[in-house]
Amino acid sequence: MTCGHCVSSVKEEIGGLPGVTGVDVDLAGGLVTVRSEDPIDAARIAAAVEEAGYDVVTS
């Protein structure tokens, strides 16, 4: 991700997942924080990020 549009795209895709109540994206660090009513499978979050056109890297 390199710009505000990238952040918006990722937030929109993840925010559309059922149960998600908030999404924060740290552009500089590439970190995404997801808040939800109940636990959400990490694979669903990764799929949403990939749907937005970005790769998921875990450490």
Results as ranks from 00 to 15, higher is better:
50 E>G: 01
59 S>N: 12
48 A>V: 10
18 P>L: 06
52 A>V: 02
58 T>K: 13
55 D>C: 02
10 V>S: 07
49 V>T: 05
39 P>G: 08
33 T>E: 14
25 V>A: 13
34 V>D: 04
46 A>Y: 01
1 M>T: 10
41 D>M: 02
50 E>R: 02
13 E>C: 04
20 V>A: 09
21 T>H: 04
20 V>S: 07
34 V>A: 05
20 V>H: 11
13 E>I: 02
34 V>L: 03
20 V>K: 09
40 I>W: 02
19 G>H: 11
23 V>L: 06
54 Y>N: 02
6 C>I: 05
23 V>C: 09
31 L>N: 13
16 G>H: 04
47 A>N: 03
38 D>Q: 14
56 V>F: 00
11 K>F: 03
31 L>D: 14
55 D>G: 15
33 T>H: 08
4 G>Q: 13
42 A>D: 15
30 G>S: 08
14 I>D: 00
56 V>I: 00
51 E>C: 01
30 G>C: 09
6 C>D: 10
1 M>I: 07
58 T>A: 10
59 S>E: 15
15 G>Q: 07
22 G>A: 13
28 A>P: 07
30 G>A: 07
43 A>D: 15
9 S>W: 03
47 A>D: 13
41 D>E: 15
17 L>N: 01
52 A>Y: 02
30 G>V: 07
48 A>F: 10
1 M>F: 07
7 V>K: 12
50 E>K: 01
14 I>Q: 00
46 A>F: 01
27 L>R: 12
27 L>C: 11
27 L>S: 12
33 T>C: 05
52 A>L: 00
1 M>V: 09
57 V>Y: 04
21 T>A: 03
40 I>A: 00
21 T>K: 12
56 V>T: 00
14 I>G: 00
55 D>F: 09
48 A>M: 11
19 G>Q: 12
41 D>H: 05
26 D>T: 09
30 G>D: 07
31 L>Q: 14
26 D>P: 02
29 G>H: 10
22 G>W: 08
14 I>A: 00
38 D>N: 13
7 V>Q: 10
26 D>K: 03
45 I>G: 01
34 V>C: 05
33 T>K: 14
44 R>L: 14
5 H>M: 12
8 S>K: 14
15 G>H: 07
57 V>L: 12
14 I>L: 06
56 V>K: 00
44 R>E: 15
41 D>T: 01
44 R>N: 14
43 A>T: 12
15 G>T: 03
1 M>H: 10
36 S>K: 08
39 P>T: 04
4 G>K: 11
55 D>A: 15
4 G>L: 04
9 S>M: 12
40 I>H: 05
47 A>W: 00
43 A>N: 06
16 G>P: 03
2 T>D: 08
10 V>P: 07
15 G>P: 09
8 S>F: 05
2 T>Q: 10
21 T>L: 06
31 L>I: 15
56 V>P: 00
15 G>N: 09
44 R>Q: 15
33 T>N: 09
56 V>R: 00
38 D>H: 11
